[in-house]
């Protein structure tokens, strides 16, 4: 049996487990202690819950088991897709001019493009949070990530070596498969201060020309 089929069967078994296992304590409560009152009330997933008896016991066990089984679900997903475990890259970008001054212009983040070598499509805004395929052995992806703000400048995230992953601004969590940056990732303009231009007359853009 290949991994994909095994993964699907395990997923199916897991979802059955989600609903069947909580039945055991509720039946036991119903049979052994018929007079014991179990009450569950409150809100769950946006729904108002107010139940009692065996169904309340079922509900409580169901809620507890969902948390416990979520970790198992992640492992099953890994079995189904072993070659592409994903890692989350989380961080904040900081734009700087040629003299090192921070530029706070959120409009420039609209021009941001993130690319990987080898290329994998992804997108982000000022606060970046994206997933990239990891190595088959489960270690972090060996990639160079380029953050390109078109017309402004570029920044890079170097994950190509073990040494790069031990950087002081980078927290690598192997459990959650997350690489989080404690310091902003700098995007510096490619323009040097000496390249400034004097005010001149510019072409006037037209609207609807490309329609």
């Amino acid at each position: 049996m290949d991994r994909e089929i095994a993964g699907i069967m395990l997923s199916f078994a897991l979802y059955l487990t989600y609903f069947l296992i909580p039945l055991v304590p509720s039946i036991l409560i119903y049979k052994i202690f018929p007079s014991t009152s179990v009450v569950a009330s409150g809100s769950f997933s946006g729904l108002k819950i107010n139940s009692s008896g065996a169904f309340a016991a079922y509900l409580i066990t169901l809620v507890i088991s969902i948390n416990a089984l979520s970790e198992t679900e992640a492992r099953i997903l890994e079995i189904r897709n072993p070659n592409e475990p994903t890692w989350s890259i989380i961080g904040t970008l900081e734009l700087r001019d040629g003299e090192g001054n921070v530029i706070n212009n959120p409009l420039l983040f609209d021009l941001l493009e993130i690319s990987l070598e080898p290329r994998v499509l992804s997108s982000a805004n000022g606060d970046i949070h994206f997933k990239i395929p990891g190595s088959p052995d489960g270690s972090p992806p060996k990639r160079m990530i380029t953050l390109d703000v078109k017309g402004f400048g570029r920044g890079k995230i170097n994950l190509t070596s073990e040494a790069a992953l031990t950087g002081s601004d980078m927290v690598v969590n192997y459990q959650t498969r997350t690489i989080e940056f404690s310091e902003p990732i700098e995007i510096t303009t490619l323009t040097q201060p000496g390249q400034r231009y004097s005010e001149t007359s510019y072409m006037t853009p037209v609207t609807g020309a490309g329609e």
Partner: peptide, 14 residues
């Protein structure tokens, strides 16, 4: 430049 208003060549423009 969004703050100073200085003009710079736009690198990487398509």
């Amino acid at each position: 430049h969004p703050y100073t208003g200085d003009l710079f060549p736009a690198s990487g423009a398509t």
